[in-house]
Amino acid sequence: MLGYIIRRAMFSLVTIFLVSILSFAIIQLPPGDYVDSYIAQLQATGTPVSEAEAENLRARYGLDEPFVVQYGLWMRQVLRGNLGTSMQWQRPVREVIGDRLALTVVVSLAALVFTWMIALPIGIFSAVRQYSIADYIATTIGFMGLAVPNFLFALVIMYIGWSVFGLNVGGLFSAEYELQGWSFGKFVNLLTHLPVPAIVLGTAATAQGIRVLRNNLLDELRKPYVVTARAKGLSETRLILKYPVRVALNPLASTIGYMLPFIVSGSVIVSIVLSLPTVGPVLLTSLVSQDMFLAGAIVLLLGVMTIIGTFLSDMILLLIDPRIRMEE
């Protein structure tokens, strides 16, 4: 068991390392660097910038060094908790995305909770009543959920909310709380705003979850131990909940591992459409203006967050599946 945990942890560390390289590489991709676009921007507003000033800027950000050195510089700062300065906002990256990152976690977790709340009962139901009308409906809705791209779903919900109910369903806070510090009222306000992004983000994962659970459960329902349990005289409901569902949950728990990247990925686009105060919209603007430290930090943090989440879900799996626990 300890061996398993160590192996998983090692794997996560290696993945984090690779993600950091990828994030940095992405930032290096655009032709020209931030100083170019910064200068262009200044010049457009009528402020001339001299060569010397430009060089100065480049030196400050280490933009003249080779990739490896720049990466090394960046990582050393990151490991010290310094994510650099956003050139676009002229503020430390940590300040720019601190709250937003926390809200991204909140939104992703809300989506995950939503996913499970819906996927569990529907998945169980459609496996137990295979080929019933309800099963077909659930399967079809599941298909729709998988098929409709997140951002379109968000658009359609926004549209319906606005044109039918006259509501702006975007955002995570009402206007009066938006700029306030944290308070109980703000927290409650957040809770009332969470369902829409949770549903939009969670639907595809839910559809996936229903499918996985249904298939696992259909497999499990045919296993001899179900017959054994039935032959004891157990009632159908108790039987299904105690045995096949319990066994089918394990693979489902492991799907958190791949749902999380999926949800976090989706949250970026959905946040932009729903104008959520998460890192999504900031990532888009930072990419467009080539604000490398900001974009790099966001890609890196999203990756790290997901990897940690996946690691935690593996640990949960370890707790609930005695087979893994024993074998190691």
């Binding site: 001899p224 054994t228 005695p322």
Partner: peptide
Amino acid sequence: FQEPMTSFSPV
């Protein structure tokens, strides 16, 4: 029945 491997719930 036959399958002693699978006639108990594994978990």
